[in-house]
């Protein structure tokens, strides 16, 4: 189980990386920790000509506070987010989500940007950052643009990234002190990819009452409706309604599991 031949470059700066990524004579992919891409390479499910290593780009490896946002470089590892050596704005929610991703040796290498670019619907950051109202900053040949998470993930392994673009940063809005975060994923084993995810943020001072159903073989389902937090019947009705038009519509057991995941995430914010 060995990867097909590929070439590898590790430019010093983001501009150099973007120049390589915009080559159209080769199939080029950015790589950071290679924790999602590595298995696909070894299984020969992807066979790029060139990997551009962005894991050490100084522009992508920092975490900083920018006004009412935490700005996380795309090449920041899950382990760093788990360990919390940054000015957190989420009351520990980022660390909690990070600690549940795969296993520590994977978290030591895997990055937040890599996970989002990979866009597995079952991935933690896909659902969690959508519920947090985060956005991603994409850098490309035409400059930078910011895309909200709700709109970045377009499908299974499908994102708003255009050819030549790379995720530069993730911007997470600061929770208010009153915010409550709920996160529940259904896994048969520790560290396994989620079968159903509920991610919810209830932050009344900011007017946020967002529920997300994730791991649905497509973009996460976003429900911005405060009533689902207080009214179980409405919660189930809205969730069932959204799931009925989702990619798992034909699978009643999966629909039920996703509704349970959502209910349990909401239960965490409703003591």
């Amino acid at each position: 189980m060995k990867a097909a031949l590929f070439d590898y470059e590790r430019p010093d700066g983001l501009d150099g990386a973007l120049a390589l990524l915009s080559r159209d004579d080769l199939s080029v992919r950015p790589v950071a920790g290679s924790q999602s891409l590595g298995p696909m390479l070894n299984l020969r499910l992807v066979q790029p000509d060139l990997l551009v290593d962005v894991s050490r780009l100084p522009e992508l490896t920092g975490i900083r506070r920018d006004g009412d946002h935490l700005v996380i470089g795309a090449s920041v590892t899950h382990a760093r987010l788990e360990d919390g050596d940054y000015p957190d704005v989420t009351g520990g929610a980022l660390a909690r989500v990070a600690a549940g991703i795969a296993y520590r040796p994977v978290r030591n290498r895997g990055t937040i940007g890599g996970s989002l670019a990979h866009a597995d619907p079952a991935a933690d950051w896909v659902s969690a950052l959508t519920a947090m109202g985060a956005s991603v900053v994409l850098a490309g040949p035409a400059g930078r643009r910011t895309v909200p998470m709700d709109g970045f993930i377009l499908g299974v392994f499908e994102t708003a990234l255009q050819p030549g673009e790379v995720i530069a940063e993730v911007r997470v809005p600061a929770f208010s002190p009153a915010a409550r975060w709920g996160y529940y994923k259904v896994c048969r084993k520790t560290g396994e990819f989620s079968h159903a995810t509920g991610a919810v943020l209830l932050d009344p001072p900011r007017g946020v009452a967002r529920a997300v159903i994730g791991a649905v073989s497509g973009p996460p389902l976003v429900i911005d409706d405060p009533a689902v937090f207080t009214d179980p019947a409405r919660r189930d009705a809205v969730a069932a309604d959204r799931l009925a038009t989702s990619s798992i519509a034909g699978d009643p057991a999966a629909i039920r599991t996703h509704m349970v995941a959502l209910a349990r995430a909401i239960a965490q914010v409703n003591p």
């Binding site: 048969r188 084993k189 520790t190 560290g191 396994e192 990819f193």
Partner: peptide
């Protein structure tokens, strides 16, 4: 990822 064998937990 598809064939699960029991782990520590």
């Amino acid at each position: 990822a598809d064939y699960l064998i029991p782990g520590f937990t």
